[in-house]
Design a protein around this nucleic acid. Structure first.
Lengths: 248, 248
DNA sequence: GAGTGGTCTAGACCACTAC
DNA sequence: TAGTGGTCTAGACCACTCC
């Protein structure tokens, strides 16, 4: 959509906000990954204290305009757009690569276990059924980006551990290898501050804002649940668009 | 869902993070709106500088645990849950009130205007058609919370300006007064840093994180578009849950 | 070792809200 | 007027990355 009315800008009262707006404009046309002036340089060039210069860069980090790494510097940031809708989303790996970044998936665990009660209920499995518990971590340009857990009925995916290539899409495997024709049964997205344990699993010190994505896939062919998932995706790295239907 | 494995906590390295965790635990059981110790008090009680105490409260504000107001203090915060799905969502006013907060809606503009091109296309209107342009601002406990624009075909809602009570739900009016039986045609949600003009319209100095919610409602009875909307909702005030289908 | 961001201090003045 | 948070300074030491 397009904005209709314009509103007069008010000049920021604080020095650090005025400087932040200035740097944001300067940085807007630079490609992602470009090095931004350091705190010390900003301070010297604009005659402010280092703390003020620091406040500028922190403000821009809050706006997701830059990303800061201790010991390395401050860099221009861009979020990767990722659409989620009633249909199965496009491959994560492909989406990230198309955005010009380097995706990497690592499977931290593939184990066949007795299904916990709530998983059994959600997957409509009989008592004492086993499920494949899958834990995967994904990075973008080496930066931890998502952490995901899935549960699949073990009888539907025999030998999944061997068949799941490290780089491949789980959905492709379910579709092409096992012929399950997965479709969305339900899904749910919500924004939250990552709890401490998720931050640890992501290898982060801070507690990032993250989207919690949960859902279940059913097999169109078999008419039964195939996968139950919950994943955490950092909101500063992904611009997740949740949509249903489509505009004219 | 329920977490499956636990992860060992690491003690925060920085003093302000350790203190933030401590205060967060203390504050967890207090009701929303409770006054939290001030920067000065925190500093004195824990033998740290005011800047460190300030860093603690700012960290908790980033985690949406507290809300800070200049001149008044720091207060325990709770986000209001608001579900969005294929069906028309529950009344905003009712949802906020049920959460124990005081909602207020003000209509800033109700005007019949010539439809801009993109609105005309989306609403499938003929050339030179007129639409009702509706701009509404909502507050929660006096705090600006959302800013929304809607466009409706003028011929479908004659006399809307008089019929739209300040406190009432637009959807109820469309359904009960005009008998339009509105249903969702499409919708889309996305998280973003509010642009400067939206921040101004919300009456805020900072640039809050906000959910951009867009969509179109069609009349089931008439089979034609009824309302096109775009709204911004502050992510620190609302826990917006986006869902499709439902878990078992 | 040089440069980056992360933490922390002591102190100052200001803007805003309440009473 | 007193108390709150918001901005800003000058300086210090630390942790981390890269060469």
């Amino acid at each position: 959509m397009t904005p209709v009315a314009t509103v007069q800008r008010r000049p920021p009262s604080a020095a650090y906000l005025a400087l932040a707006d200035e740097v944001e404009r300067d940085v807007a046309q630079l490609p992602a990954g470009t090095l931004v002036p350091s705190e010390h340089e900003l301070a010297g060039r604009h005659g402010v204290s280092r703390l003020t210069a620091r406040a500028v860069l922190q403000e821009l980090e809050r706006r997701w305009v830059v990303r800061r790494v201790q010991g390395r510097g401050t860099f221009v940031a861009r979020r990767i757009e990722y659409r989620i809708g009633p249909d199965i989303p496009a491959s994560w790996t492909e989406t990230v690569r198309r955005a010009g970044a380097e995706p990497r998936s690592t499977t931290e665990r593939v184990a066949t276990v007795r299904a916990p009660g709530w998983v059994r209920r959600e997957l409509a499995l009989p008592a004492r059924a086993t499920v494949v518990h899958l834990v995967r971590r994904r990075t973008v340009d080496g930066e931890p980006a998502t952490w995901a857990e899935s549960w699949l009925p073990a009888d539907l995916v025999p030998g999944l551990a061997e068949r799941l290539p490290a780089e491949g899409s789980l959905h492709h495997v379910l579709h092409d290898v096992y012929g399950l024709e997965p479709v969305r049964a339900w899904y749910r997205a919500e924004l939250d501050v990552a709890p401490d344990d998720v931050a640890v699993r992501l290898g982060l010190r801070a507690r990032p804002l993250a989207l919690v994505l949960q859902g279940r896939l059913d097999s169109r062919r078999l008419g039964r649940p195939v996968e139950l998932t919950r994943s955490w995706a950092r909101a500063d790295l992904f611009r997740i668009v949740f949509e249903m239907g489509s505009a004219t």
